[in-house]
Structures are given as structure tokens and as C-alpha cells.
């Protein structure tokens, strides 16, 4: 029972509480650069999730063999292997998306989220937990990128996943698909995320205080 709970928590923490984009602010380069549309966000997110999950599994399996002094270099070799797989697969299967994501697919090699999870989690936990953690983080990354890309696509192009959602009279705000729009949207998303969490924490604190007071009586 309690083990099940921890696995659930391990998975869920990447989605919200320790969300790689909104809380850890890692992987900002692809987050800001490729999210000009929702579909780009999905593509980038899933590619990263695949690399993250496979790399976490491998690193967790190898964690007792890799000497501490060369661990970062070893992690990079493992990660680069999977990035190459993703890059070539996307070029063959989804050439259009591969073109629009450009250099950011090969750059997954140096994505901080992957290296961060490898260093902080996979190299210290068993393969099962490493996979669950990687999936949670990867899907949290994907969800954030898709939301960011969706907002920018709707406002900057009038479409969502390529489907026209805004009325025809709507004049797109071109700034939203320019780099400035990425910063503005991400900033506002972070603000809303923090506001929501503060409110949540305050409510939890009040509830705890009430419970303590009730116990005292």
C-alpha cells in the first residue's frame, strides 16, 4: 500500500509539484525556442520524454558500474545514444516536424532536465523508480510545452493544432510567435503557477492550524 503510494507520488511530482519547466525552470532553451505551436510542444516534449526515460533506465542499471569521477561524461554518452535514435527516427518518420524543431532535437543531449534527473535521481535509485520518475518529469515537461505552445499558437496564429479556432476577423498578435511572446507567456504562466501554489499552501497552513487548535481544545 505505502509502496504504491510512493510510486504514485514519484510519478505525480513531475507533473505539478516539481514540474521541470514551471518549478525547476530547467530546459528553458527548448521551452522558449520551439513552442511556436502546440504540436511543436508535443513533439519536443515526447522526444525529450523518450530520451529521459531510456537514459534514466540505462543509468540506473549502470549506476554501480560508473565510477563517480567520470559519471557526467558517461551520462552524456548514454543520453547521446538515445538522442541519436530519436533524431534519426524523427528525420525518417516525421520529416516536417524534424525540420521545424531543427537543432533542438540534437540539443536534447545537453538538456538540463535529463542530466539533472540522471545525476539527482537515476544514479541513486533502482530502475523501476527511475523509470517512473522519468515518465512523470517527461510528461510534465510535455504538458508545459504543449500549454505554452497552445497559448502562443492561438494568440499568434489563430489556430490550435493547426485548426482555426479564432474568428476570421481576428488579427493575430504576431509578437506571440516571436521570441518575445515566449518570454511573456512563460512569465505569465510562472506567475499564475506560483499564485496558485501560494494559495494552496496558505489553505493547507490554515487547515493545519485549525486542526492543531481543535486538538488543543
Amino acid at each position: 500500500m505505502s509502496k504504491q503510494m510512493t510510486i504514485n507520488a514519484e510519478f505525480a511530482k513531475g507533473l505539478w509539484e516539481h514540474n521541470p519547466v514551471l518549478r525547476q525552470l530547467l530546459g528553458m532553451c527548448p521551452t522558449l525556442a520551439v513552442t511556436t505551436s502546440a504540436i511543436n510542444g508535443v513533439g519536443m516534449g515526447l522526444a525529450t520524454t523518450f530520451v529521459l526515460t531510456c537514459a534514466s533506465l540505462m543509468i540506473s542499471l549502470l549506476r554501480k558500474l560508473i565510477p563517480g569521477q567520470v559519471r557526467i561524461a558517461s551520462f552524456i554518452v548514454v543520453i547521446a545514444t538515445f538522442v541519436t535514435i530519436v533524431d534519426l527516427t524523427m528525420k525518417a518518420q516525421f520529416p516536417e516536424m524534424s525540420k521545424s524543431l531543427g537543432a533542438f532535437i540534437p540539443l536534447i543531449v545537453v538538456n538540463c532536465i535529463i542530466l539533472g534527473r540522471a545525476e539527482a535521481f537515476a544514479s541513486k535509485n533502482n530502475p523501476g523508480r527511475a523509470i517512473i520518475d522519468a515518465l512523470g518529469m517527461g510528461l510534465g515537461f510535455t504538458a508545459s510545452l504543449t500549454t505554452l505552445g497552445g497559448i502562443r499558437e492561438v494568440l499568434g496564429n489563430g489556430t490550435l493544432f493547426g485548426v482555426q479556432v479564432m474568428p476570421h476577423q481576428y488579427v493575430p498578435w504576431i509578437v506571440m510567435i516571436l521570441p518575445a511572446g515566449a518570454f511573456l507567456t512563460l512569465g505569465l504562466m510562472l506567475g499564475i503557477y506560483n499564485k496558485f501554489n501560494h494559495r494552496h499552501e496558505e489553505a493547507a497552513l490554515r487547515a493545519a492550524r485549525l486542526a492543531a487548535a481543535a486538538k488543543g481544545v
Binding site: 488579427v171 498578435w173 504576431i174 509578437v175 506571440m176 516571436l178 518575445a180
Partner: peptide, 8 residues
């Protein structure tokens, strides 16, 4: 600046 970038 926002308008200039949005509606050139």
C-alpha cells in the same frame, strides 16, 4: 513596443 511587434 508590443503593438509594433504584434501588428506591424
Amino acid at each position: 513596443a508590443f503593438l509594433q511587434a504584434s501588428f506591424p
